[in-house]
Simulated assay, not measured.
Amino acid sequence: MVNDIIKELEEKMKKTISSLKKELASMKAGRATPAMLDRIEVDYYGTMTSLNQLANISVPESRILMIQPWDKSAMKSIEKAILVSDLGLNPSNDGTSMRLVIPELTEETRKNLVKNIKKAGEDSKVALRSIRRDANDKVKNLKKDNSITEDEVKSSENDIQKKTDAYVKEVDNVVDAKEKEIMSI
């Protein structure tokens, strides 16, 4: 029973870390990556559709993203979705494909990005603590049901705390790596 709780805790914490990594990958870092457009949703015939499902996204040069929609009639919708996004990019549309030039990062932009990175890291830590609290509550409920002893409760809480500490450290490492990447460009 307790092992199931700890396995579930680890699965949820791993998902939190991968979610953080995905979010940080979509933050622009002065060079073009298709992951920057992962959060863009396009109104495609009345349905909100992820941009990467509507077009081929490539990186012909280090600071240019090329978007080639499979359905050319979606060009206007894609352009509109990019313009209203928080990326601050202006697409240049030639009728068959679209180019996005990623501007060089200014010092102020870097500092704002680092702020957003740290906020994403803190949000992930809050999520990890919430997962820890839920796991501890489940262990305490097992104690109330007399399914486990007080010693097993203490041991389980220690295990849960150790796992939480390890994942919080991993969040710090991911955030630090992204911060260094942004500041060194």
Rank of each mutant, 00 (worst) to 15 (best):
K111D: 12
D134Y: 06
V84H: 13
K115T: 11
I148F: 09
S19T: 07
D172C: 05
E23S: 14
I78K: 03
E104A: 15
K162M: 12
T96R: 15
I131E: 09
A35F: 08
I67Q: 00
E157S: 08
A25S: 15
E104L: 15
Q53W: 00
D43G: 05
L128C: 05
S156D: 12
V139G: 08
K143T: 05
E152F: 08
E108C: 08
A55K: 00
K15P: 03
T33I: 14
N141P: 06
L24T: 05
I40N: 03
L105E: 03
L51T: 04
D165K: 07
V114F: 13
S58D: 00
K125T: 08
S18Y: 06
N116K: 13
S85R: 07
M13W: 02
L65F: 00
M27D: 02
Y44E: 09
V139H: 11
D165T: 04
G95A: 12
T16F: 03
D159V: 03
K72I: 07
G88Y: 01
N146C: 08
T16E: 15
N158E: 11
M98Q: 04
M75I: 07
I82G: 03
K162C: 02
I40E: 01
E8H: 15
N136I: 15
E23P: 10
T149D: 09
K111E: 12
V139N: 09
D145A: 14
T109W: 04
Q161P: 04
V114R: 05
A25K: 11
E61C: 05
D145K: 12
V2A: 08
S50P: 07
K138E: 15
E108P: 09
A135Y: 06
K125I: 07
G95Q: 12
S147L: 15
R132C: 01
S50E: 03
M27V: 14
D134A: 14
D86C: 05
I64G: 01
L65A: 00
D145Q: 13
S77N: 13
V174H: 02
D137M: 10
D86N: 06
S73Y: 03
K22D: 06
K154I: 06
M48D: 08
